[in-house]
Write a protein that binds this DNA or RNA. Structure first.
Lengths: 195, 195
DNA sequence: ATGGGCATGTAAGTAGTTACATGATTTA
DNA sequence: TAAATCATGTAACTACTTACATGCCCAT
């Protein structure tokens, strides 16, 4: 199997909003799902090929030579609902900022402050983006709009949490006696556990 | 290169807290970094082998036959600091719950409620866990404790945001006229954009 | 003496990214 | 007519997971 069920779900789902080309689908996934989902370019086309082969999607009239618009077949809609009903697979988290802060003693206080400040700035931009999308969405009376709203609200809450955390974290860092990182040979001295 | 810089950073970092065996390292990564970082079993041992070969870590006295405790060398501490100072690589998000809610019209209102309720329950457990770890950490006067606290605070803020979002989301779902998911052949009818 | 937890490793397979290659259509 | 954008696809590579294989040591 060249593509995974997860990718197929995203592709079928995208086409359930509206029929479109692979190129447009990629943009929709980037723009509309981008804050909680990613599909790389090299996965979308193989997925389309496989889904068409299985009769879950079909090509509609070509808008121009060499391109085609894909739409769900009834079988594809059925399969999408099956996939959506499956339990979400837990994702492996990999937060590079928190990893660096965890070992912040080695990184040094100032670099930690910078990491937190950068995270705060990113969250501020993210929050602004979410609020803008939400306004657009509130004018949208389509059947998908309330569900899409749920994902935007999640983005807003996450961004606000990130801001609040960053402010608290900067406070903690301010409270530390400013000390240089330990000398290399003292790195492993205090053999302590933190359960 | 069998292992990545990210894995090496986590392994070197773990050994900067205290020297330990590969097995213990794996448990530390799961228990202490688990809420924001994951390393699979099959990556830790190859990483240890490579790091030892490069002189960044060394085996200390064996606690028992067939096992050995690894500790950072000065070179390893230096390398860890270099790695920590590199910019965190942005991670590709894959939130299966939000993906399903985005296509919630196909999934159906009730199944969406259940997804949100499950997320809420998970967040509640997560929050309780973070608070417990924080209490332990507040009794810890070691040099790593304040930095570790930052990551725990992040977990707390994220969990609280998840709770607040879930409550708001349940309210939105309650506000929807209860309707069955659309028939399969109407799936693509309203060709609407929501950019 | 045996079952469970500690400990180390490998091999096969899956998943995902990146870079490349190609060409059509539109706009300036 | 050149540049930008739309559009489709593949091949090579990197990263990661899972399952398996092995054996030590301690408690019952």
């Amino acid at each position: 199997m060249a593509t995974t069920d997860q990718t197929r779900m995203a592709v079928l789902g995208g086409l359930s909003i509206a029929p479109m080309t692979g190129y447009a689908l990629r943009e929709q996934i980037r723009d509309a799902l981008g804050h909680f989902w990613a599909e790389s370019f090299g996965q979308i086309y193989p997925a389309l090929t496989a889904l068409e082969r299985d009769g879950l999607i079909e090509r509609q009239a070509a808008l121009r030579a060499g391109s085609s618009t894909f739409a769900l077949t009834p079988l594809g809609t059925e399969r999408l609902r099956e996939l959506l009903a499956e339990a979400p697979q837990p994702v492996k988290p990999r937060n590079g900022v928190l990893l660096r802060l965890f070992f912040g003693r080695q990184l040094g206080q100032e670099a930690c402050r910078k990491l937190v400040a950068d995270t705060r700035a990113t969250a501020e931009a993210e929050l602004a983006g979410m609020c803008r999308i939400r306004e657009e969405l509130e004018a949208d009376t389509g059947p998908d709009a309330p569900y899409i709203l749920l994902t935007v609200l999640a983005g807003e809450h996450a961004a606000r949490a990130s801001l609040a955390w960053a402010d608290e974290a900067l406070g903690v860092l301010d409270g530390l006696a400013s000390a240089a990182p330990p000398a290399a040979n003292s790195a492993a001295t205090p053999a302590r556990e933190h359960s």
